[in-house]
Design a protein around this nucleic acid. Sequence first.
RNA 1: GCCUUUGUAGCUCAGAGGUAGAGCACUUCCUUGGUAAGGAAGAGGUCCCGGGUUCAAUUCCCGGCAAAGGCUCCA
Length: 647
Amino acid sequence: MKINVTLPDGSVRSYEHGATAMDVAKSISEGLARNVLSAKVNGEVRDANRPLPGDCNLALLTWNDPDGKATMWHSSAHVMAEAVESLYPGAKFGIGPAVENGFYYDIDFGERSVGEHDFAAIEAKFKELASKKASFIRTEVSKADAIKYFTEKSDEYKLELIEGLNDGEITFYNQGNFTDLCRGPHIPDTSFIKAFKILNVAGAYWRGDEKRKQLTRLYAITFPKQKELDEYLAMLEEAKKRDHRKLGKELDLFTFSEKVGPGLPLWLPKGTALRERLVNFMKKAQEDSGYVQVSTPHIAHKDLYVCSGHYEKYGKDSFQPIHTPHEGEEFLLKPMNCPHHCEIYKSRPHSYKDLPIRYAEFGTVYRYEQSGELHGLTRVRGFTQDDAHLFCRPDQVKEEFKKVIDLVLLVFRALDLTDYEAQVSLRDKEDRSKYIGSDENWEKAEQAIIEAAAEKGLRTVVEYGEAAFYGPKLDFMVKDALGRKWQLGTIQVDYNLPERFDLEYVGSDNLKHRPVMIHRAPFGSLERFVAVVIEHTAGRFPLWLTPEQAIVLPISDKFVGACHDVVRVLKNSDIRASVDERNEKIGRKIRDAELAKTPFMLIIGEKEAADGTVSVREHGQGDLGTMAPASFAELVNGRIKAQLAAH
RNA sequence: GCCUUUGUAGCUCAGAGGUAGAGCACUUCCUUGGUAAGGAAGAGGUCCCGGGUUCAAUUCCCGGCAAAGGCUCCA
């Protein structure tokens, strides 16, 4: 009896019954067979050496397929577990899945504490085991046998996992001296793994539950070639160099102080100026889009947040209320700007003709984040949002969304963030009970978002069940220069707050109606946004944003005066420049300016001073020749204009 | 909050149970130099904080504080 196998290119090949994906690979080429990690059979990823079920569609998976990589990494987790078990007898194992970059295994080492100093031994053992070319062998076991096996090993974690499985669907995989409860699939044998590295160690609660025991999680990665591991490690090094915390310090943008407190960034003059430019950029764009600025204080009555519902949801995990000394009133540090804006809306009646109303505020908010959650500028306790709230009629939602999308894209363009993706978050299809607002309005809003995104030509993914309880949303994910994903701009529809604050407008029918509210923040928070921009550009900011656009370098003291003259000319053209007056040689000044990532260096010596020119050198590019200061100003402003051009 | 690691000069980091070290930065002097580091001298430290062990602790132990990596990825 023969079976027919359809390959991804549509070709059909015939094999003996019981043939495996590996047999198919071998029949195509030896080279392919050496690289096959697993196989996708009728859409399901399976072991390459498992007999095919009959006629099927088959895709052979190699290192180039995400599923192939995952197979390899998951198998690597088993080998790492084997290494750990042989070095630390009695270790118990939780789960060991493949993740985005490598894999991990959660391990209970008992009383022992395992840290970085143990990595070398585990790595050595791993290499020894991997080189044995042990096959991964799949066996189906009964639930009773599975329980028996892990009871003997007294591994309560595996036993708990087995509890949740049905008899008849349980499989074990074995390689070398290690057997694990595992659904698979796995690579044929351990020889495919040529390079291994433990990346870090972390505590992880069993099943992600902080009430349960904390296991030791070993993160690691493997590759089929040593060279690829080396490249990966080099990439991590590069990421470290771009770390915004390091660059923020080097470029004098911001700092932290233990006295001031964790998660509370202090912006230095250069960083503040950079922030201001971002703020002004946004203010201008918002003005052009019909926003009006409002301003609200940093604290408010607790009742405001009780009304908005934020107190109930976040209150217990927030900074505790501030009490007035005599009246005993309770005030909270502002965690959100929206309730304030609702009150501004309420301060007077509105006609349908007034809508949409767009209140914008660069509002600084304070949120308690657990100490371990804090991270540089990306996770802080005090930060400034480029917040705005749009109050509109239901029929205006789509148009408003499109305008906000334009604003977000304007920001991305100005900062060279070209690789982005939009996520539309909608209601759970099954359970609609957890959402507030009428079905009809939701329907309308969801449709409006989808259409707005489509009409703007966004690349979107739709996620059901990801909407907030108060409304659907559109989030922008940006990939930075190293391919890391960040969530930046967000646009959210809200039916909840208009309800809670009893917001209304008078319609053309002279009846009262509920406006729809849209929250949006193209930057998200200034802190986080600056961090992303630093890491994306490695500190080489776009010309319009950079702290200092040009530094003027005198060849010797004699030309300092001429340098200041040039700075004055540049200032008149809105170019930020200063003079390096230090008593140093020109080579040194150039080096320091290059390291400070200053975009342009203007050198003035005998020749330039005499004919009123500057010798222009561009960061990372070198000498551009001499020109008049006015021509240089034109060059800079021309480039800035090109970058900020709307389209 | 919890786990692992770390905390020494402004920065990056070395160090040892017995008077604290380097490079860069800083100050002064010399040098006036043409596209990525000119030379010399000097100043600078509560070795994160609090307790304990010791004749002696910055070093060892305990407790805090802060920072870093992680705590969503489901056999």
